[in-house]
């Protein structure tokens, strides 16, 4: 399998990349880790006329804590997150990172590339939903921060405008006791999630839940926030019963398809099981 021909440039500054994207308009596409894009090109499911390779823009490879957030640059690889001490500030981020694809793909693929790809079977956007992340977007005319809910538009569709690119993603690190988890049912290393559930719990001083985040993978046409479940949890004291109710609400927020990886009813059940277990794990790590 061989990709169709394309034009190529690899600027070594962000300005250079933005200028190229501005000039190319709809013809241009960013190449980051390429671990999804290149296989899609081999199958001719993607045929960009012009690739702007950002792999030489070393200023984008950061992972850092700043202003109460964990920020991950557009060139940070999945395995950079696995190895990062700063990333440990977010349980939901650090628990998801080792389960992205396989070790070699993690060496090359990027967090932001996955966020921008908006594959509903991708793990990172569920994590970003649970953590209420902001996507840092830049175009030649300026930069903006887009909440993850607004960034994800649909199946493989984000809200970037022509000429814009993702330069990073920032995960707020709450000041209170916070815990999180990512639970993924995959059949083998390298497989996409059959079902994935990201959870985060921020506790108030009295032990009640200040805010909950729940993101669902591979059970809708896009990564989905389980809003009703989150609302049910906020302000309440955590308990097994409460988590079970939230789990049922999360399952109701899913609309999985029956496919070769499993039956829809079962997937919905797994959403509930993982939400319940994930919340329990988040609570345990918030308390520790």
């Amino acid at each position: 399998m061989y990709p169709p021909a394309f034009e190529y440039q690899a600027p070594d500054t962000l300005e250079g990349a933005l200028a190229a994207l501005a000039e190319l308009g709809d013809e241009g596409r960013v190449l980051a880790g390429g671990q999804s894009l290149i296989p899609m090109m081999k199958f001719h499911l993607a045929a960009p006329a012009h690739l702007v390779d950002i792999n030489r823009i070393s200023e984008l490879s950061y992972i850092r804590r700043s202003n109460g957030s964990l920020c991950i640059g557009a060139l940070a690889r999945h395995n950079d997150v696995v190895r990062s001490d700063d990333a440990k500030a977010s349980d939901v981020v650090s628990s998801a990172a080792p389960w992205i694809s396989d070790p070699l793909v993690r060496n090359r693929g990027t967090v932001c590339g996955s966020v921008a790809h908006c594959d509903p079977e991708g793990d990172w956007n569920s994590v970003m939903l649970a953590a209420r992340a902001e996507v840092m977007v830049q175009g030649s005319s300026g930069s903006r921060r887009v909440g993850i809910d607004d960034f994800i538009v649909s199946y493989f569709t984000n809200s970037l405008e022509t000429g814009e690119m993702v330069t990073g993603v920032c995960v707020p690190i709450p000041s209170g006791a916070t815990g999180g988890s990512y639970m993924k049912l995959e059949r083998k290393i390298g497989d996409y999630a059959t079902v994935g559930v990201a959870t985060q719990l921020e506790l108030a001083d009295d032990g009640s839940i200040a805010q909950a985040g729940i993101g669902l993978t591979a059970v809708n046409y896009q990564n989905t926030r389980a809003s009703a479940a989150e609302d049910m949890l906020a302000g309440e004291m955590p308990s097994d019963e409460l988590f079970a109710e939230a789990a049922a609400a999360a399952a109701s927020a899913s609309d999985p398809q029956t496919d070769v990886r499993g039956d829809a009813d079962w997937k919905r059940n797994v959403v509930a099981v993982f939400t319940r277990r994930g919340l329990a794990q988040a609570l345990a790590s918030a308390g520790s």
């Binding site: 190529y8 690899a10 390429g34 671990q35 290149i38 296989p39 390779d53 792999n55 070699l104 793909v105 060496n107 090359r108």
Partner: peptide, 10 residues
Amino acid sequence: MKSCTMFAVQ
């Protein structure tokens, strides 16, 4: 790295 998922120019 998987060399079938990288372009030589990279």
